[in-house]
Nucleic acid binder design. Structure first.
Lengths: 341, 341
DNA sequence: ATTTTAACCGAAAACGTTTTCGAAAACACC
DNA sequence: GGTGTTTTCGAAAACGTTTTCGGTTAAAAT
């Protein structure tokens, strides 16, 4: 254990800790000469400031907390990637917590982060979360929060999102323009905003193009971890509505479940039924036929969210007013085989 | 900002900070009565200890650092999942850093973690890493390190691994027993231990079954982020060795690249050429034909690695001798369509 | 009535920094 | 030689805890 601290440098040089500290931090009231001596000695003794002490004194930890619903998830790991890169670039470390889509866990973890004195928090809400007191409390405590992807419209903070409704609208419009007549939707569960918005986009696109919305063509897939849901509902819809000719799925995972079933049941995609996914996961190029989907820029989302968060943190520190922003990242249709005859 | 501290409780109750602190921590020299009063007041004032101050005083941060080569990677995100779960259960937070397979980054990040005063470090080495000074230095500073998956045999610390050589040996033996005669290997780059070990397992299996090892049947795939490498080398091998009848790939990603090419080129899998992957990524069930592969227990690996690390941290704290352990997690063959005719 | 013991509490130091403020020294000017 | 100015440094407080050690009081024992 050769942990050198300020006092070691000070006594080695016969000067005070104050002077050493100031020399290292470039204060101007230290002469060039002693400053040089300090720098040299610090280097020689391999000095590294004790972050914990610095944190206590400066009241900032240069750490941000991140709460996501899951890590084993292509989209979220992309976001994480963006977060880590941008945070590192700006000199912040990041503590990750995963809520496993549980509201209670999410709440507990947020409390943990606050206690750890993180400088700010990045969150994507769990599917269960429909009460936002814990988030509002955090904001009230002057800890900046930025929400991404799975957000709550009613919380007053910065957000980084895609326009789920528009993306879904575009997807379904695309299908309509391709000539598909009976378009079903495999939606997600009822609470998350994305799920609602994508459903609304689906519905609006139908109505905008003079097609009748039929609630019986909407199936709920609320399992996020495997493609069974898509598989089973595909089976079901073909029994109940054998004349459906396209399905817009809430995620690539669901879409892949659908295609899996179709492949096994000998239902041709896209000839008999076209399939449209959402998110552009890696595996959407692995499945055959390759999946048409919406590209959801996870990496950029992580980048942007960190960037906004750190800006708010520094604004707060310097007593500048912080203005919340809602950034909407563009999405686009990735056309592949599952929708082109 | 309503951050209550010990002194707030103390003055509200007309007692000293010492007493409050002791009451909260259950010291026995505080009367039942005042202890109750303190607890109640702390609850009422919503007291949460300032971790930074505690850290400084106790000289531990209850935080562990994790350095992995990549986050957008099915295996590593599984490990991360295990790490997060076990760490949370044991009251530790985790700081994630990704090296992007770069040695210099890995080194810098380790320094960052040390400066942050993490209590221990979990690492999976980058592909470039062939110098271990930074890790040995960390250990010398009495910061426990446990390596997982991509380890260095020469570093003296605990490790959690699979037996890559044996797993590869089993895979190739399986192919041999299935009657495949000309088995190629798509290996990884030359530095990482896994890559070496899987290659050795391949070679030994051939030799053990009286088959000749031919270095011309070994192709190098050193790109870890997409399946192009597998795709291109599949193309190449079919030109150079059209009579190959099985390929053992170093990862599922490479295997999927191979199958993709075969599907496009009309080469039947497994009829003409069987394909064997490694890791059991999610997408190995998405590809058609479904991929036979080796199950690599990422979640358990994360779990175990954290468990060992925290044990070492507490042993160290209580001045017990720490004994390094090498834990080898079992793997097994997942037989799917890509190898059964 | 005195001593012993136990129960309860608090002063103070410590963890390693940062920053304010004042003091000393050096220099300049008349 | 006095006055003012600049340069350079350090003492000390502060951040919020934890823990040691001693002190006070009350109860128990003699």
């Amino acid at each position: 254990m050769n942990d050198t601290k300020l006092i070691d440098i000070a006594s080695a040089l016969g000067i005070s800790v104050t002077t050493v500290s100031k020399a290292l931090k470039g204060y101007t009231d230290i002469s060039k000469a002693t400053r040089a001596r300090v720098l040299e000695m610090a280097d020689k003794m391999n000095y590294m400031p004790n972050s914990v002490a610095v944190n206590l004194r400066t009241n900032e930890t240069k750490t941000i907390g991140v709460i996501i619903p899951a890590t084993v998830h292509h989209f979220f790991s992309s976001v994480l990637n963006g977060i880590l890169e941008e945070a590192e670039k700006r000199g912040y470390l990041v503590i990750i917590l995963q809520s496993n889509e549980k509201y209670e866990l999410e709440k507990k973890q947020l409390a943990l982060l606050i206690q750890k004195r993180v400088d700010g928090v990045l969150m994507s809400l769990s599917n269960e979360t429909d009460d936002f007191f814990h988030i509002n409390e955090t904001i009230r405590k002057n800890i900046p929060v930025v929400l991404f992807d799975k957000i709550a419209k009613r919380v007053d903070c910065s957000k980084v999102i895609i326009n789920d409704a528009k993306a879904a609208y575009d997807a379904v419009s695309y299908l309509i323009n391709k000539g598909f007549k009976k378009i079903a939707h495999f939606r997600g569960s009822y609470v998350p905003q994305n799920s609602i918005d994508r459903f609304l986009g689906y519905k609006r696109a139908l109505e905008a193009h003079g097609m009748e919305y039929d609630s019986k063509l909407v199936y709920v897939c609320d399992n996020n971890t495997d493609f069974e849901d898509g598989y089973e509902n595909a089976q079901k819809i073909m029994a109940e509505h054998p004349d459906v000719d396209a399905i817009f799925a809430i995620t690539d995972l669901v879409a892949i479940g659908i295609i899996k079933y179709f492949n096994e049941a000998g239902i041709k995609t896209p000839e008999q039924v076209a399939v449209f996914g959402f998110s552009n996961w890696f595996m959407s190029t692995v499945i055959s036929p390759k999946l048409t989907t919406i590209d959801q820029p996870g990496f950029e989302m992580g980048h942007k969210a960190v960037s906004i968060l750190i800006d708010e943190i520094t604004d707060l520190k310097e007593h500048r007013p912080i203005k919340h922003q809602i950034v909407e990242l563009p999405t686009r249709i990735i056309e592949r085989e599952s929708t082109v005859k």
